[in-house]
Simulated assay, not measured.
Amino acid sequence: MARNTTSAGAREQARKLQQEQERKQKRQSLLLRIGVVGIAVIAVVAIALVVLTRDGNGGNYTEGPAPAAATDEGGFVLTSGTELAEGADLGTIDAEDTPSGDGPASAQPREEGQRPHLTIFTDAHCVHCANFEGAYEEILRGLLDEELITLEYRSVSYLQSRSNYSARAANAFACMADASPENYKGYLSNVTANYQGQEINNESLAAIARDSYGVDIESCINDATYRAFAAYVSNTAWEQGVSGTPTIYVDDSQYEPNTFFEPLMTEVSEYAEEAGIESDFVQQAEEQLDAEGEDIGQSEPEAPEDAGSTDDGEDE
């Protein structure tokens, strides 16, 4: 009888030990799950802190490199259709630290013997800019190649969208200026002129560069290398009173897209006479524009508060 009592007690002890072991396993499993969730939360917080640290207020790109060929105010100056003038080599820029001044530094009166200088503020997300490039790209390239003008593009990011197309395209243009200056104008004009209200994703921006110009800027585009620079250009332009695109300066005078061509050609004709340049292109360009009668509007966006936003919900 004593053996049966001892056996029953042993079984009861074994049962209690098993229950205790099961409770320990449940506690360990729960702690493990809590630990995994905690690590995930920490990871998300860490990523958010990295983004905020990198992007500054509002999740914007505020600090980063500038292409060596960029001017002090973020323009790229073409001396021919395939050549960029030497830039200011800005190094690392702060998008919120914009140059002071009431207008672009490039807006200066033309001196005798100096080529007329054309400054164009353009936004790849602007349908009026697409119309402008479609109408004037060949003419402006011809004037460049005839060495009758210099041309400066300022790619601003005024028009906001879900995928931040303006800023992404401006970044891509800067990538091309840095990687292949000889293809900068062609790429910018191509992408801008072919905008039909449908935003272009990063993959396609890289494909155009690769397929049309044989240049690989995919990593520069995907890494958003020059997004802080793109914000810097926009902020600078806005502070200088440029509130629409395309906005155009012929030397020191500002024009809308429908009024710039006549004063430009007047300046070109005067320069050609001063420099002793004989060219049939000037008359051909004037006749072409007279025949086409281009009527190009201008966008009037709000202030570019989110010019460098990181929320790139790209349209595929």
Rank of each mutant, 00 (worst) to 15 (best):
S212L: 13
K185Y: 13
Q196S: 14
E199K: 01
Y195P: 00
E203A: 15
L205R: 00
Y195E: 04
Y187P: 11
T192G: 01
E199L: 02
A206D: 05
N202K: 15
A209S: 15
N183L: 01
G186D: 11
Q196N: 14
Q196I: 11
Q198I: 13
A177I: 09
L205S: 01
L205P: 00
L205C: 05
A206F: 06
D178E: 15
K185S: 12
Y195H: 10
G197C: 04
N190P: 00
Q198M: 11
Y187I: 06
N202W: 04
P181V: 08
N202F: 09
Q198C: 01
V191N: 03
T192D: 06
N201H: 09
S180H: 03
Y184V: 07
K185E: 10
Y184L: 10
A177C: 08
A207Q: 14
S180M: 05
A177V: 09
Q196D: 15
Y187W: 05
K185L: 15
A209N: 13
N201F: 02
Q198T: 15
N183Q: 09
M176L: 14
G186T: 09
I200P: 00
Y213Q: 06
P181W: 11
A193T: 07
C175G: 13
P181I: 10
A209V: 13
E199S: 12
N201D: 13
I200E: 07
L188F: 02
Y195N: 06
A207F: 02
V191A: 08
N190S: 14
A206E: 07
T192F: 10
Y184Q: 05
L188H: 09
A179K: 14
S204G: 00
V191Y: 03
E199V: 12
A209R: 10
G186R: 13
L205M: 07
A209H: 09
V191W: 06
Y187N: 06
A206I: 10
Y187T: 04
N183A: 04
S180C: 02
G197S: 12
I200R: 04
L188V: 14
S204D: 14
Q196G: 15
T192N: 11
S189R: 01
A193S: 15
P181T: 11
Y187Q: 08
L205I: 05
